[in-house]
């Protein structure tokens, strides 16, 4: 017999059966569950709060060192519903972070694109850019406050100074990794410089810019708040200093919680922007492998 025998398993599944996704395994279900952190996070937080409460009770700590969780919550609830906190502190910090980010994007992405495109320009300006980063930036804060005053503008500059570097590095790296074949394609289509940039370089670099944004948004928040700590009249950093001076420790914890939520919100906005701006990118695709 020369004919190749087709071997079939005892029961061949029909096409319909194959097209139907297989029932996910337990671990796949866990991994693919988009709401996973909505269950686990509260659970972990609850555990943490219980541990906190027990610690305070057992050791009988002073309320000025570590208030019990419920006191912090009461303070936080009062703060978050207080229009004064929103208007003077949260809004001020938000404004500083946003303006700082805007400045950092213009500078960081702009310079990053130029550096990425021109190795010559890179060699000329890089020492100065690295210079702005190796100087301990916090040490520059008093200087900016001296120059620009206690108002928001000094914090805007500090936030921008911290945020622009990750943007610059990521952007220039992205532009430089545009594959040569992409440029070849544009050349065969007789693309102008502008078309080359707009249709190949920029979309290719977008995921890199957004990765930079994730870092930048955190850095800008740190920059603004540290600026306020060291010399400000408004903002969440200043608010924390005031509470510390008044020994309102429960409210100080509340302020820290507000800062955390503030940073978390901004960060979520950036990750959300990923899905919107680069839906095609691997990092946004559902994971195929564990």
């Amino acid at each position: 017999m020369t004919a190749t025998k087709e071997r079939r398993p005892a029961s061949t599944p029909s096409t319909d059966e194959l097209l139907r996704p297989p029932p996910p395994t337990w671990s796949q279900r866990l991994r693919n569950n988009r709401w996973l952190s909505f269950y686990t996070s509260p659970l972990l937080i609850a555990l943490f709060l219980v541990a906190w409460k027990i610690y305070v009770e057992v050791t009988d700590l002073s309320r000025f060192v570590l208030p019990p969780p419920e006191a912090v919550f009461k303070a936080f609830a009062a703060q978050i519903t207080d229009p004064f906190v929103w208007q003077t502190h949260i809004w001020t910090t938000f404004y500083e972070v946003m303006m700082g980010l805007a400045l950092a994007i213009v500078l960081g992405v702009g310079l990053g694109l130029m550096i990425g495109k021109s190795p010559l320009f890179d060699r000329i300006v890089r020492p100065f850019i690295v210079g702005t980063q190796v100087v301990p930036k916090v040490a520059l804060v008093p200087l900016f406050i001296l120059w620009l005053g206690f108002g928001p503008s000094s914090k805007v500059v500090i936030a921008a100074l911290l945020a622009f570097f990750p943007l610059l590095i990521n952007t220039s790296f992205g532009v430089r990794s545009v594959p040569g074949s992409m440029h070849d394609l544009m050349t065969t289509l007789k693309a102008s410089r502008w078309e080359r940039f707009w249709r190949a370089d920029l979309p290719y670099t977008m995921p890199f810019i957004l990765a930079g944004m994730e870092l930048a948004v955190v850095q800008a928040t740190i920059g603004a708040i540290v600026g306020e700590y060291l010399g400000g009249d408004q903002g969440l950093g200043r608010y924390a200093v005031n509470l510390q001076n008044n020994l309102q420790v429960d409210k100080l914890f509340g302020a820290i919680l507000i800062m955390a939520l503030f940073g978390f919100t901004l960060y979520s906005i950036v990750t959300g922007a990923r899905r919107l701006l680069i839906p095609w990118h691997e990092s946004v695709q559902p994971r195929r492998r564990p």
């Binding site: 594959p179 074949s181 992409m182 070849d184 394609l185 065969t188 289509l189 007789k190 190949a200 979309p203 290719y204 977008m206 680069i278 095609w280 990118h281």
Partner: peptide, 16 residues
């Protein structure tokens, strides 16, 4: 000045 048609050895599609 019409552009050429060039088919590369690798597909070179734009992933976006």
């Amino acid at each position: 000045d019409r552009p050429l048609g060039f088919v590369f050895q690798e597909a070179t599609l734009m992933p976006w």
